[in-house]
């Protein structure tokens, strides 16, 4: 098993490294923006046995994400961390930059709080292995936004194709068809597996996977 922990905030990366050391476990820590640091499956020679059919899969077997799901102003964007040489900038500038990066972890939610999650779903469609599974935490309005956007996308493509959005009209399942790199869309099934009601909102864990499994 190879475990990799990713965070956009350098201070969080240090904390992860420390926690894993204290627990005597081997985890590699990457300071990066979601999976943008990973080589795309199509550019590697690994797992491309089905690439001729447009099916290239990634290497990630288990992906975990507790995304920033709070609603934010429309157009608010999370910043991407920059690579700077620490010996060339003043401490105050570095502290300001660290602060902006830390804040960025909570920004970019958009009016439905799903902008960061949607970016992760695009990457999951590309980087999950054929039988890979993505466990993600969502608040109820995040899931509603994903379903609404899926319906809108189907509406633009084919108005008669509504039958497979929900399985048996279940509120706990949706087939997402708009995520991936664009050249070969790979549908993702999204199923609610755990829920907890907290004051004012419902938090749920969803299992996201390739529907042919």
């Amino acid at each position: 098993v190879h475990c990799i922990a990713v965070d956009i905030n350098p201070a969080a990366c240090h904390a992860t490294s420390h926690t894993c050391l204290l627990n005597n476990v081997q985890v590699d820590v990457v300071c990066g923006d979601l999976l943008s640091w990973m080589r795309h499956p199509k550019s590697t020679c690994v797992n491309i046995k089905n690439v001729s059919q447009g099916n290239s899969y990634g290497l990630i077997d288990l992906l975990l994400f507790n995304p920033p799901y709070v609603r934010g102003p429309n157009g608010e964007c999370a910043i991407v961390p920059m690579v700077l040489k620490s010996d060339t900038i003043e401490n105050s500038t570095e502290n300001q930059l660290q602060s902006k990066i830390a804040d960025a972890a909570w920004l970019g939610g958009g009016p439905d709080g799903v902008e960061v999650l949607k970016k992760a779903l695009h990457q999951a469609a590309d980087f999950l292995s054929e039988r890979g599974v993505f466990y993600v935490l969502m608040i109820d309005y995040n899931y509603a936004a994903l379903v609404r956007e899926e319906i809108n996308a189907r509406c633009e493509q084919d108005v008669n194709n509504f039958g497979v959005i929900n399985e048996n009209n279940s509120k706990d399942y949706v087939l997402l068809t708009t995520f991936g790199d664009g050249t070969a869309k790979k549908p993702l099934a999204c199923r609610r597996i755990l829920s907890r009601q907290v004051p004012g909102e419902k938090l749920s864990v969803y299992r996201v996977y390739r529907p042919h499994i």
Binding site: I4, A12, T19, C20, L35, L64, F65, P68
Partner: peptide, 21 residues
């Protein structure tokens, strides 16, 4: 098996997963 946690924060989940696997 490749396991990736996005937004690991303090690393509590990463450490727990690594320990359980």
């Amino acid at each position: 098996l490749l396991v990736v946690e996005l937004g690991s924060g303090a690393g509590l989940l990463s450490a727990a997963v690594a320990k359980s696997l």
